[in-house]
């Protein structure tokens, strides 16, 4: 019984895929109570069913809860290679040197304003590597761990699957408008149970970095 697909586990616990651990827990507690100490009103609904039926429903609830919690607690490994900026726009052969020396400590997450001001911050000038948490591939990984499909997100948020794919693949050139992108990231993060503020900040730093590099590449192109 222990290898129920994750998607079915969410159905058994009657929560949406991507529900937060707290939501999963409270659904589990509610269902366990419902099927163990039945109130008189509930008894009239279940009286036709056998004790085995009830036992198997309770066992399924236990299994589903255990599987989902195990999946949610699974440590998320840092991504290994950060994908290169997609080459739709030519990038310079030599990548630009960081304007600031790479700090010894991991860089603190940037202030929200930093993400709004591309090309104007020492943090942005650093390579994207210090911000692995919310890169597109990491978002994808976290989404998959939670058993959420892009279609699920589309149904809840009306963000087209194609746009969601571009976000996860970091096809920045297709994500032209930063204000739309920000809204989409917030909705995406909320739906899969990530912190929307943190996710948006980290992702937009990568996006801003790409814009800066694209601008530099275009400037270099113009000089030729």
């Amino acid at each position: 019984m222990s290898d129920i697909p994750l998607e079915k586990c969410y159905r058994i616990l009657e929560v949406r895929p991507g529900a937060s651990p707290a939501e999963v827990k409270s659904a589990y507690v509610r269902l366990k109570k419902l099927y163990t100490d039945e109130s008189p009103v509930i008894k009239v609904l279940t009286s036709e069913f056998t004790a085995e039926d009830k036992t198997s429903i309770l066992a399924e609830i236990e299994d589903a809860h255990r599987i989902i919690m195990a999946a949610l607690e699974q440590p998320i490994l840092p991504p290994r290679p950060i994908p290169d900026i997609p080459a739709a726009h030519p990038t310079p052969a030599v990548s630009p040197k960081p304007a600031a020396p790479i700090p010894a400590k991991p860089v603190e997450p940037p202030k929200p304003a930093a993400a709004m001001l591309p090309a104007n911050s020492a943090v942005l000038a650093a390579p994207a590597a210090p911000f692995p948490d919310s890169s597109g591939p990491m978002l994808k990984l976290r989404r998959e761990i939670r058993g959420v499909s892009l279609h699920d997100i589309y149904v809840a948020t009306k963000i087209r699957v194609e746009v969601l794919e571009n976000i996860e693949a970091e096809k920045f050139e297709a994500l032209a408008d930063i204000s739309f992108l920000r809204t989409h990231l917030i909705q995406y993060a909320r739906f899969i149970g990530l912190d929307p503020k943190e996710t948006t900040e980290h992702y937009l730093v990568r996006y801003a970095d790409w814009r800066r590099r694209r601008a530099q590449a275009q400037a270099a192109e113009g000089k030729k």
Binding site: E14, R30, L31, L34, V41, I42, L45, T46, F49, D53, I57
Partner: peptide, 14 residues
């Protein structure tokens, strides 16, 4: 208030 979700659950599971 919880009765609605309870009825839903029972119909679905049984």
């Amino acid at each position: 208030v919880g009765l609605g979700l309870a009825v839903k659950s029972i119909f679905s599971k049984y």
